[in-house]
Design a binder for these strands. Structure first.
Length: 628
RNA sequence: GCUCUUGUAGCUCAGGGGUAGAGCACUUCCUUGGUAAGGAAGAGGUCACGGGUUCAAAUCCCGUCAAGAGCUCCA
């Protein structure tokens, strides 16, 4: 990670552009550091920047901060705020700063027996020509480029939020520090609003809703990061598959079906093994091989070595679908007239994610991509990319997900790690750029973010807690066609190499549904709802009438149930509301006589009585059009 | 993988060195009720797992597994 320093250190320009809120938060971080220093004088501080949600300060000290300490810290902070200390900037020479740091005076309230270790390190990172400043508030002095608010009294509304650990400078080889997170706002009202928003976000969390609505399960007995889709979740998933399938057919894709494992040699050819072995499930060795090794008294290490060297063979749970699709492409002779060949599959892949990274449906070890591989000529590349983006656009628009970010990953001009010819890259990057701009949405070009095998476009959305997740992706690949020696016969009757595009509009079904649950807070549009209509007879006397309506709707393919439990309507409604069922139909004496149903919508409430057929037509139309 | 926190009934959680509690859900009965909870009775738990300390462990200690937050990673 050569650019760690750049990531951590903001330039002076960036600092001067700090917004008022960022400035306030950064100052509050100092106030917090002051408080922590008072409570635990051995505290050694590292970085303490503002963030999107607030601020943090990294600290190393003997005491382990727990949530029980937050109140104590806040109380000390309040004292500092009450004293209304001015933030004073003092420009010093490098030597002066170093002298203070050696005395342990930086990020501290007084001289100490120990040096301000991190600050000495930070000092070395400041370029020669840059001004070195120390900010003081009361007795707390800290090496800091600023800027700050005028006085500690300006930090009126704050809260210590959480504590976690972080590696110094984000390097896993460095010591771990305690990162104390806090947030700050102009005033108490805004702080209150923010905290309320966080509470609301928790209610949207897909893990919570997934459990409440019985959508999916991650079971210890099955394994970490392995999602079990329960019946209701499976309906949701199937609806999404049907939806995308319609559009795939329209765009001329061919569906294929391939197994979840393949020979190690296949992935050796593709380059996935052993290069990415540490992020895959361990290979499966053949029984005979294991037996043979055991008889020879050989170790697991020997086995691994043999598998890696290719001396013995085995199978791999596939980390990607492409090799299988490539083999399908290669099983036929292709003329330029056949291209583009578009092979699509809802393909399940397995990756060994680090255990600490797993979470809900958004980061898992087995997932299904709505994958496809397009084999085309250079000239077709642009149109094909456009087609892929069109698909992503349809998906996001149909689901009303407007809040996404488009990231175009380009190659790093200074690096030589990329495969393929520079002219090809230029062409592909230009095609991606053009395609991206056709979306009519801002996109970020990020040099150095391309994969080694080609440039890409990613669609990124945020979850309930504000974390960003990559969903859809379109990637150009020059590598695999080369490695597998893909060919087609051109007009000139000579053999040519096709270009490949990997693309997945949803990305992974698991992650997509996780994000979707949070997007809708469980209130899925009718076409996606596991149960679309629930019929609520007023009493058992009307169950028969309810059953008749049930039949009418079910025959139209509506997912409908009758609540024939021995409860009052109030209770039935409550239950249906909690299950976020879009439509509730109430049937009593009135409705039975007039062949009507009283319609209640989960958001609009009681919308009055309509004829059974009228309701049927309306709800069927709503489902067919996939209305939001 | 690392640091911290957590793990008690199907769910949400209380309790806490002397072999378990609430609400919801579930079962049965009564009730047949018009837009977010009708009533009664009942059933349900090796207190994540494995060790240790103790006369006694769900409770204290250690380890394992899992979850959450963050860091690192993500072809």
């Amino acid at each position: 990670m050569a650019d760690t320093d750049q990531k951590q250190r903001k330039t002076l320009d960036e600092r001067n552009q700090m917004s008022d809120l960022e400035r306030l938060r950064h100052s509050t971080a100092h106030v917090m550091a002051t408080a922590i220093s008072k409570l635990w004088p051995d505290a050694q501080f590292a970085y303490g920047p503002p963030t999107e949600q607030g601020f943090y300060y990294d600290v190393d000290m003997g005491h382990r901060i727990t949530p029980d300490d937050f109140e104590k810290i806040e109380a000390e902070m309040k004292k500092v705020v009450k004293e209304n200390q001015p933030f004073e900037k003092m420009v010093v020479s490098r030597d002066e700063a170093l002298t203070l740091a050696k005395k342990g005076r930086l990020a501290a309230l007084s001289d100490r027996d120990v040096e301000s270790t991190f600050k000495i390190d930070l000092l070395e990172e400041i370029p020669e020509d840059e001004e070195i400043s120390i900010y003081k508030n009361g007795d707390f002095w800290d090496l800091c480029a600023g800027p700050h608010v005028p006085r500690t009294g300006n930090c009126k509304a704050f809260k210590v939020m959480s504590v976690a650990s972080a590696f110094y400078k984000g390097d896993a080889n460095n010591p771990q520090l305690q990162r104390v997170y806090g947030t700050a706002f102009k005033n108490k009202t805004e702080l209150g609003e923010h905290l309320e928003q966080l509470e609301e976000a928790k209610l949207r969390d897909h893990r919570k809703i997934g459990k409440e609505l019985n959508l999916f399960l991650i079971d210890e007995a099955v394994g970490q990061g392995l999602v079990l889709w329960k019946p209701k979740g499976a309906i949701l998933r199937q609806q999404l598959l049907d939806f995308i399938l319609e559009h795939l057919n329209r765009q001329g894709y061919s569906q294929v079906v391939t197994p979840h494992i393949g020979k190690l040699d296949l992935f050796r050819t593709s380059g996935h093994y052993p290069y990415y072995a540490e992020s895959q499930f361990p290979p499966l060795a053949e029984r005979e091989v294991l037996k043979g090794l055991a008889e020879e008294g050989r170790s697991c290490g020997d086995l691994m070595q043999q598998l890696e060297s290719g001396e013995t063979t085995g199978f791999l749970l596939r980390p990607m679908n492409c090799p299988h699709h490539i083999r399908i492409y290669q099983s036929d002779h292709h003329s330029y007239r056949d291209l583009p060949v578009r092979l699509a599959e809802f393909g399940t892949v397995y990756r060994w994610e680090q255990s600490g990274e797993l979470g809900g449906m958004t980061r898992v070890r087995g997932f299904t991509q709505d994958d496809a591989h397009i084999f085309c000529t250079e000239d077709q590349l642009k149109d094909e990319i456009m087609g892929c983006l069109e698909l992503v656009k349809i998906v996001l628009e149909t689901l009303g997900m407007e809040d996404y970010r488009v990231r175009v990953g380009l190659r790093d001009p200074d690096s030589t790690k990329y495969v393929g010819e520079p002219e090809q890259w230029d062409k592909a990057e230009e095609a991606l750029r053009e395609a991206a701009s056709s979306l009519g949405k801002d996109f970020a070009e990020e040099p150095g973010e391309a994969a080694f095998y080609g440039p890409k476009i990613d669609f990124v959305v945020k979850d309930a807690i504000g974390r960003e997740w990559q969903l859809g992706t379109v990637q150009v690949d020059y590598n695999l066609p080369e490695r597998f020696g893909l060919e087609y016969v051109g007009k000139d009757n000579a053999s040519h190499r096709p270009v490949m595009i990997h693309r997945a509009p949803f990305g992974s079904l698991e992650r997509f549904v996780g994000v979707l649950i949070e997007h809708f807070a469980g209130k899925f549009p009718t076409w996606l709802s596991p149960e679309q209509v629930r019929i609520l007879p007023i009493s058992e006397k009307f169950v028969e009438a309810a059953d008749e309506v049930h039949k009418v709707l079910r025959d139209e393919g509506v997912r409908v149930k009758v609540d024939d439990t021995n409860e009052k309507v109030g209770a039935k409604i409550r239950l249906a509301q909690l299950e976020r069922i879009p439509y509730m139909l109430i049937i009593g004496a009135k409705e039975q006589e007039s062949n009507q149903v009283s319609v209640r919508h989960r958001d609009r409430g009681d919308v009055g009585a309509v004829g059974v057929d009228e309701f049927k037509n309306q709800v069927v139309a709503e489902i067919r059009s996939r209305s939001l």
